[in-house]
Amino acid sequence: MLVALAFSPATWAEDNPYSNHYQAQNQGDLHSLQANPEPQLFSGTRRDEDNIRMLENGYDLMGFSSFEAGEVDAEQARNHGRAIQADSILVYMKKAGGASPSSRMEVIKEAVKKGQSLTEKDVAATAGSYRYYATYWAKLPPPLLGIHVIKLVPKQATQGENVPTSTASSEGVRVIAVIHGSAAEKGGVVRGDQLLSLNNEKVDDAAQLSNLVRKYRGKAVKLQLERQGEPLATDVQL
C-alpha cells in the first residue's frame, strides 16, 4: 500500500538533487493530461511491486531520480514533478546502513525513555547520508487493449555452463501488467501470459503489438496466448 506524503509548502533553490539526477525513461513526450498538474507524493515500499501496481492503475513511467545525500525534504521531489508535469511520484529513502531518516530521532527518544546517555559518536552514527530514489508517473488516456509487455530473449549458454530448459515460450511477448478495467482484463488476460498473436498476426515485440491494436481499433479481435505452457485463446473488443 502506498502512503501519501504531506509537507508544508516551501520555496527551494534551483539546486534540487531530484532534478539534477533525473533520468527520463520514456522516449515520447510523456506528461500529465492535465494542464497544470499537482503531483501526488507517495512513500514507496517495494520498487518492483509498486511499478506493477502503477502500470495496472493506468500510469506509465516518465523517469526516475537516484542519488545519495544528507537529509533532503521529499517536497523537492514534488517540485521537480511539477516541472516535468508528472501526476504521481513515489519516493524511496533509506540510510546507507539500512535505517530510515527518522532513525536518528528514534535513537534519541529510546535513550531518553531508558534514562541512557548518548555520546556524540552514537548520534553521529545515525546521521550520515541517505540513498534516495524517486519514480515519476503520468496517467495515460484510456487504453484500447490495456497491457504492458516485454520481449523475452532466451539466455545463451556460455562455454561449460548448463542452462535449464524453460517451459515458458520465448515466442511472442510476455504480459507484465494488465490495466484495471481494460479490454484485456475483461477478456481474461492476466500478468504472466505470453501473447503470441492478435487476429492470427504474430506479435514479436511491443511496437508491433501497438501497430496491430491501432489497426483493429473498434473491432473484436482474438488473442492467442500461452499460460503456464498451455495454449489459450480469448476474444476482446478494442
Rank of each mutant, 00 (worst) to 15 (best):
A96N: 08
A138I: 03
M105R: 12
K114N: 14
D60L: 11
V173I: 05
I52R: 15
L90N: 08
G63F: 08
R227E: 03
E14L: 14
I176R: 08
P154N: 04
A157P: 05
A77C: 03
A125V: 05
E49V: 10
A168D: 11
D15W: 02
L198R: 01
A86S: 14
S197Q: 06
A4P: 09
E226I: 04
P39G: 08
G146M: 09
A86P: 00
A83C: 02
K95N: 13
E71G: 11
P231S: 06
Y216D: 01
A96Y: 02
E106H: 12
F64E: 11
S117P: 00
H31C: 12
N20M: 13
A10D: 00
L238A: 00
K186D: 09
G98A: 07
G146E: 00
A233P: 02
A206I: 09
G172T: 02
N162Q: 15
D87R: 00
P9M: 01
A134S: 11
V236K: 01
E14S: 15
I150E: 10
A233H: 10
R227A: 06
A220I: 05
L140I: 11
Q85C: 12
L212H: 03
S88F: 03
E185A: 13
E106K: 14
V107C: 06
I52Q: 15
Y92D: 00
Q159P: 01
T135S: 14
L33K: 07
V178K: 06
R47V: 12
N162M: 14
S117C: 07
F67N: 05
D73F: 14
V213E: 01
A207I: 12
N211P: 04
Q194K: 13
G192E: 07
D235N: 11
K109H: 10
K113H: 07
Q194I: 15
R131Q: 13
L212F: 08
G63R: 05
T119V: 01
S117E: 10
K219H: 09
K215M: 06
V163G: 03
S117Y: 10
Y130C: 05
F42H: 10
V175F: 09
T45V: 12
A111N: 00
P37S: 08
V91Q: 04
E56R: 13
V173P: 06
P154T: 05
E38M: 11
K94V: 09
G70N: 13
S129K: 15
A99G: 12
A233Q: 15
D205V: 03
W137H: 00
V112R: 12
I150R: 15
Q237A: 12
Q224D: 13
E68A: 14
N211Y: 08
L41S: 02
G187I: 03
R174P: 01
K94E: 07
I108M: 10
H31I: 06
I150Y: 07
E120Q: 07
Q27G: 05
M105P: 01
E185M: 14
R53F: 05
R82C: 02
